[in-house]
Design a protein around this nucleic acid. Sequence first.
RNA 1: GUGGGAGUAGCUCAGCUGGUUAGAGCAUCAGAUUGUGGAUCUGAGGGUCGCGGGUUCGAAUCCCGUCUCUCACCCCA
Length: 429
Amino acid sequence: MEIQSVKGTRDFYPEDMAKRNFIADLWKRVSLRNGFAEYDGPIFEYLAMYQLKSGDEIASQLFAFEDRGGRMLAIRPEITPTLARMVNQRINTLPRPIKWFSIPRLCRAERPQKGRLREFFQWNIDIIGVDDCLADAEVIFCSVDYLMQTGLTSDDVVVRISSRRLMAALLEYFGIEEQQLEKVYGVLDKKNKVPQETFEKMLEEVISDSSKRQKVQKLMAVESLGQLEDFTGADENANQAIEELKQLFNYLDIMGITEFCRFDIGIVRGLAYYTGIVFEIYDKSEQLRAICGGGRYDNLLADFGGQKISATGMGMGDCVLGIVLEEKGLFKNLSQKNGIEYFVALADESLQNELLKVVARLRRAGRKADFSYKGGSLGKQLKQASAVNAAMCVILGEEFTQKKQLVIKNMDSGQQDIVAVEDFFSRLG
RNA sequence: GUGGGAGUAGCUCAGCUGGUUAGAGCAUCAGAUUGUGGAUCUGAGGGUCGCGGGUUCGAAUCCCGUCUCUCACCCCA
């Protein structure tokens, strides 16, 4: 019986692995240069940890199992609860601010579709212990810094930013009851995702009072921060939230990424735990789900049994990002980058042992070196060198036998140099 | 979990309303070619036509089920 791969999983052949590594290596490099330190946790945790803050729907999308000791466990669908647990355990000794990142492999038992699989990688960055929206600005900056590094520009992607705090204040100011807020958020989050008519109908279902509904509709038509002032009146909370957004955009401007960023009142985020600034980054073609999303979650650590400490962060999965980079042709020269540096070839079979010595020396000197197992004509060996994207070929022939010289061939230009063996290796350093 | 579309070689696909031994291009391997590669030419290997059942003298082709992929919905940490 032929065994097939499991639904929603991927096999990474070397060419796929090269793309995955391109994505993940850059995640790591950008995190480090933005001052984040790497952490990781176990790939499974107690099931209860994920049920704590999630509804039944989300709990049903976990890969859960019972171990031999009767413990109910689940493969991690996200790493934030693990982060909360780890930070809470050492909260009194960790120097602040806590700036951590991780690149966990996650599993969710959802139905796969475009940009969403059952197993994927997700870059997470979090800043814990900073109230100031400068931390939110840094999270956004770091995300944009990454996307720019991949070659994407403000013509390709946009950061849409809003504030849960603002929405909460205004909805309360409009007279919407607190217990209705979650439902209303759920609808508002759809604003950019469904047709205008559908949006209005959905709104009607959660806000029956027509004068309140009208206020909300008018609010959702707002397109810039400036227009917000008309709505707030003297409401202190709302005005503070607007001030915070203005400060955030000021930071983003100073850091030079303002062209990527836009205020968008339709960004609410599905999750209940967001408390302040929220944002999502989209591909401008609008055909895909969000590339990444994040925001402030000031209550989460307390919800997981710790002190109340402010936190903000974001997550970026590899699926949508991979589609975007592929579409924009940004996986360039990966086979070249991963190719062999020196392919060592024989023009004389009696030099087999000398060839192995050269290969071994190259490898010990830290160079990517390889050779042909089966040998054959020099032509065949050069052909193999091309197949593995070798940058240079080192040829051992009569020059070696007579004068201990190597032929060094540049596979790109075809140019050849003859150098003495010891000169060659001393130049390598 | 609900609904639409699709499964023929590693990949992209052809295969007429059911009728010999299921094809092509690309890729792979070998040879032309034992002192110079990417090209070209020649040849070879590779398929239980996703799987199971049904209809039929006969099924890649028609029907049912199932699995997988894919798109949308739910949800989206």
